[in-house]
Simulated scan of single mutants.
Amino acid sequence: MTRTKWAVDPTHSSIDFSVKHMMIARVKGTFHQFEATIDADPADLTTADIAFSVDVTSIDTRNADRDNHLRTADFFDVEKNPKITFESTSIVKTDDDQYDVTGDVTIAGTTRSETFAVTFEGQGKDPWGNEKVGFSGEGKINRSDYGLTYNAALETGGVLIGDQIKISLVIEAAAQA
């Protein structure tokens, strides 16, 4: 197959995250609004160009008070930094259908290089004849690397919010005409 532009189908895709809470549990969340473009030949993803944009105001941790706090200057400061972005800079095949995708991540005005393990899940036509591809991915970032350092000490030792954020992606994309 040749190089094709693919647009993410947000109704069949997700960007989820989790962070350690109180040193004993994990809080999970998701972003409901995001878009991405992928310019790729599914037969050789090492040449792909990938760009993501996430609307930070769409954060959902199933707690409105926490979500509103995450939108403030203590965390994302959505009035100044309404988007999280990712632009690929390097893609290396590590195994059959497995890739290390490295790119520039920008969160709260800070840009850093991060690598995510991505799996090409397959390609096919939907019942209406539209060409689709699927990907899944996982990675970890440290929120403090992006200036997201708000925290509180616990009486028993440790901190309220962990530094490491686990990110999980499920992406279905459609070929663009």
Results as ranks from 00 to 15, higher is better:
V56C: 03
A51D: 12
R66N: 09
D74E: 13
F52Q: 03
L70W: 04
P82S: 07
H69F: 11
H69M: 11
D65K: 15
R71G: 06
A51H: 11
T47K: 13
T47W: 00
S53I: 08
D65C: 00
K80D: 13
N81M: 01
R62H: 11
D77W: 03
N68S: 13
K80E: 12
A51S: 15
N63H: 13
D74K: 03
T72Q: 09
L70P: 05
E79P: 00
T72P: 01
K80H: 13
D65T: 15
F75R: 05
I50G: 07
D74S: 01
I59K: 02
F75C: 04
D55N: 13
D60A: 04
F76E: 05
L70S: 07
V54I: 15
V56F: 06
D55A: 12
H69T: 09
L45G: 06
A73Y: 02
T72E: 07
D60P: 01
P82M: 08
T57I: 10
D74R: 02
D49R: 10
A51Y: 04
V56I: 14
F76L: 09
S58R: 03
P82L: 01
D44A: 13
F75D: 05
N63Q: 12
D44W: 05
I59T: 03
D55F: 00
S53V: 14
A51K: 13
T61G: 07
D55H: 04
D65R: 13
L70N: 09
S58M: 06
D74V: 01
T61S: 11
E79D: 15
T72V: 04
D60S: 03
T61K: 08
T57M: 07
D65E: 15
I59D: 04
R62Y: 06
D74P: 01
V56T: 14
D49K: 14
D77K: 01
V78H: 06
D77V: 05
T47Y: 00
R71N: 12
N81S: 11
V54P: 04
R71W: 05
F52N: 05
R66Y: 11
P82H: 08
V78F: 07
T46D: 10
V54D: 07
V54F: 10
F76G: 06
F52E: 01
A64T: 14
L70G: 03
I50Q: 05
L45S: 10
D49M: 08
E79A: 14
R62P: 00
S58F: 06
D65M: 10
T72S: 15
D77I: 03
S58I: 06
N68G: 11
T61P: 02
D67Q: 03
D77E: 13
D77A: 08
F76Q: 09
D49N: 12
A64S: 14
R66V: 14
V54W: 05
F75S: 10
V56S: 04
H69N: 12
A48Y: 11
N63L: 10
R66I: 10
D60R: 01
T72I: 08
H69P: 02
R66D: 11
R71D: 04
D49W: 00
S58H: 09
F52G: 01
P82Y: 04
A64V: 12
I59Y: 02
D60C: 01
A48I: 11
N63Y: 08
R62N: 12
A48V: 10
E79V: 13
N81L: 00
I59A: 03
R66F: 12
P82V: 06
T46Y: 08
A48G: 11
A73H: 10
D74I: 02
F75N: 03
V54A: 09
E79Q: 15
D60N: 15
R71A: 14
